[in-house]
Design a protein around this nucleic acid. Structure first.
Lengths: 210, 210
DNA sequence: GCCTGTGAAGCTATTCACAGCT
DNA sequence: AGCTGTGAATAGCTTCACAGGC
């Protein structure tokens, strides 16, 4: 209970709920949330059971308090600072993608090997020197890093980040990261995803992935 | 057998094998490939069994012929054209990320709503007019599209692409795509991934995701 | 009636463990 | 000895199906 997949879906539910809330809805049935999320009513109910949230058979789930419950469950009690490692095309796109000031997760800085980028502010985010990574990460207590460097640099960068106290990595490099057991790595392998789509496009059946 | 996950791992194995091959290795044991891929020897053996590939107890698997076998299995018999929809920050980063001329999957064009981009060549890729999407996609027989548009535009774009013959979508927009059963959608939800990492960074245990 | 909450069943994916080979 | 190939066992996830409530 409360596995990797459930966390992903809770995050998804929260976003869908917020958009329904913005549309003026106040309650929602498991069935409707499921169809927004692309899964089944039974799964929605089970996921919500997992975080101990209850709805009413009459009105379904109260959207406002469900969002609150998911936030209590998912969000850190105190805002969590994040760093971005690698300010290439992908790094810059990620900075543009993630809202600057989000409630609980904020990208507080970036690092790049290119000295020309150091000291500059890219997409509203300051770039620090490559060598200062350990110092800044450990001093500011950063525990999550986004790795958007070339595959060749990724393992070394990961090791340095972990030594500085990082416990979670969102890794865009197609390279295995040599990290200890207690560090959570989420790999986003774009080449693999594209190859998967291309493969299944030539077959029947649909599917969804997180 | 030959599920979603297996395809992802085969794609990963192939890349790892190529890099081992480049290092001069000619054979590899399931155990070693597993440790590169971050999974277990039994799983590697089972995956390879799935594509009917055999190794020898003495030398393990022959890297060259294993790569070939995976290619035969994963790659389309004829090169597959792909289009990119959305030339914002993320779209441009993706163009930079995917090798221009890759053997079997080639991004043959892009589309964007912004008329200023139409006709220009961005990152070596020509941008076509938004309205011409259906025509060009169906005329060139494109079956796979990468969706890198804002969430608000994604569903409509997906519908148009599917009508033009697309059967596989790599979707970066955090929105559910209303596509028929036979279309394969692979969602890459960056916000969800980041929230997952942040969540697990505060717990023990590691994990890997495709 | 149609909803939620949930034990139980069903499925899928992974791992075990061992026969067979070299 | 250490490997592969694989049936059998296990673990994990999803769905079924129904009791209980409005």
């Amino acid at each position: 209970m409360t596995s990797e997949k459930v966390i992903g879906r809770l995050s998804l539910y929260r976003r869908l709920l917020k958009s329904q809330q913005a549309l003026g809805q106040s309650h929602i049935y498991s069935h409707d949330l499921a169809s927004l999320a692309g899964n089944t009513a039974a799964q929605v109910r089970r996921d919500l059971m997992g975080i101990g949230f209850s709805g009413s058979p009459a009105r379904g789930y109260d959207i406002g308090s469900l969002i609150e419950a998911i936030c209590r469950f998912l969000d850190p009690p105190v805002p969590q600072p994040i760093v971005l490692v690698g300010l290439g095309n992908l790094g810059r796109a990620l900075l543009a993608y993630f809202p600057r000031r989000r409630p609980h997760l904020t990208i507080v800085g970036a690092f790049d090997v290119d000295p020309a980028k150091v000291g500059r502010v890219v997409m509203g985010c300051r770039c620090y020197a490559w060598e200062d990574m350990e110092r800044i990460v450990s001093e500011t207590g950063v525990e999550v890093a986004v790795l958007a460097v070339p595959a060749s640099e990724a393992p070394a960068a990961a090791i340095r980040l972990v030594r500085a106290g990082v416990r979670g990595l969102l890794n865009f490099a197609p390279a295995p990261l040599p990290v200890p057991e207690h560090v959570h790595v989420e790999n986003i392998d774009l080449t693999m995803s594209l190859e998967k789509v291309a493969f299944f496009a030539r077959r029947g059946s649909a599917a969804v992935a997180g």
